[in-house]
Every structure is written in C-alpha cells, then in structure tokens.
Amino acid sequence: MRKYLARRAIFALGTLLGVSMIIFVVLRVLPGDPLVAILGVEGHARMQPADRVRIMADLGLSDPLPVQYVHWLGDIASGQLGKSFFRGDTVRDLILHRGPLSAEIALLALIISWLVGLPAGIASAVRPNGWLDAVARVVSIVFIAVPGFWLGLLIVLALLFWFGYKAPIIIVHVWENPWQNLQQVIGPAIVLGLAQGAYISRMSRSCLLEVIREDYVRTARAKGANEKAIVLRHALPNAILPVITISGVLLGFVLGGSVAVEQAFGVPGLGRALVTAIIERDIIVVQNLVLLYAAIFVLVNVLVDLSYAWLDPRIRY
C-alpha cells in the first residue's frame, strides 16, 4: 500500500509539473497583455514604448520565460502563489477567501448528485422500461444536455421576477452566517449536482442492470430473498465501483462547470475570480487557479483509487 501511495504521489507530482508547464506556456503564448486593464484605454493609448518596457519589467513579464517559470515555482514553494498584477493581493489570500465558497458548492453538488442520481438509477434498473425508468431517463438526458450556466440564469431570473429574490451579493462564509451562506451556495450546487446526478443515474442504472442478471442475484431470488435486500445488499455494492470512478471524473466537470455557473449566479467564488482574471489578463492568478483545479482533480482521483480497496476486499495494492 505504501509503495502504491508513493508511486501515485510521484506520478501526481509529475502530472502537476507537466500541467504547470502547459499552463505557463499557453498563457504566455496567447495574445494580449494586462496593460489595457492596468492603464485603462486612454492611458494605454498614451503609453510611450519606454513606459511599456518599465511596466512590463515591474510586473516581471520581461524576464526570460524559464526565469519567470522558476519564480513561479518559488512562489508556489513559499505558499504565497505570487501576487496579482493588479491590486497587489497574493493569490493565496484570494484562494483562502473565496475557496471555501467554491469548495462548499462542489461538495454540495457531489452530495446532491448522489442523492438524486443513485435512487433514480436504482429505480430505473429495478423496473427497466417502466414509466419510472422512462421519466428518469428523459430527465437525466435533459440535465446532461442543458448547459449549467443557462439553467443558472433561468433560476436567477425566475427567483428575481417571481419572488424579487436574489442571494447575498458578497461572500458570506458558513461560520459567519450559515443561512445566508446556504442561500449563496445552494443554487449553483443544485444546478451542478443535477447535471452530475444525471450521469450517475445513467451509470448506476446500466451497472445495476448488468449485476442484477448475475447468477448470484438469481440464486438469492431463488432462495426467496426480499427484493429490496437483493438490490441494496447484494447487487448495489458490486455495481457501485464504476459509479465511484465516474464521480471522481465528474468532480473535474463540477470544478470546470462551476466557473460558468458561479458567474451565472453571481457567486463570488474561485470560478468567478478565474473569469475576471482571464478578462483582466492577470496571468499570475489564472495560472495558479488552473493549477489548483488540476491538483484537486489529481488528488480526488488518487482518493477514488484508494477507496476501491476499501469498498472491494478483492482489490489490494
């Protein structure tokens, strides 16, 4: 097990190093610089070439690329993650302030996806081609097909025009005011959770259908076991592994989807910070946030792999 963990840790570090290089290069190859955002349109128009050189040097953007990359690794090692080009705040502060909100949304979305997706999948698999199955399949396809940000906008507009309601507009942490915090995170969590729940529903349905046809399930039925016990105690534990795997992958979608969904709901989480940083060409913030998302994705997948051994005694590392 330790050997496996060490191997996975090294592999994860290698992956993150590769990701960091790709992000770093892509952000510097893409056209555009932060000077328009820093100086404004008028200031940018009146900027002399010497001013440009000086400001780019101040921002550390005129150093050779390898030097800039090493500086960034140094910033990561120091835990500060570098400073925003604009207001001088460190990226660490940004993550500490906004990260909890985004983490809550991701966690809640995951819980909702399981709470909705798994029962729907089970119900579909137990009575395949019945009306419940048909409803569950149609609804899941709808949630897979509908873009999260669009659904988010609809929800925001419906709440606004029907009830004159809008969630708090600045960050309220759970430890400051749990009720207001819940109002802030529940919308994005539902939108993201339902989309992921649709995948879980479809995956759990197909896995259960496969397992339900296995010999040991038929044997259990032949022995007169209760149908509920057959599904929940015998079939489901064996069908759940692929669902857990896909949950790990789906977390990546939740992280990616949260960028647009947070924007739609106006939730000031990390996703929205990423959008603003992209608009402002604040590449220090962008590269750190993308790397953070990549790190979370890698970590979750390691945890999913480890959970296999716990869920299925036949698997040993």
Binding site: L39, V41, G43, R87
Partner: peptide, 10 residues
C-alpha cells in the same frame, strides 16, 4: 479597479 492610482486610471 485594476490598481489604486486614480490619476493613472481611465
């Protein structure tokens, strides 16, 4: 704001 210098801003 992208920075805090009102004179330099537009």
């Amino acid at each position: 704001p992208a920075h805090f210098d009102v004179h330099q801003s537009g």
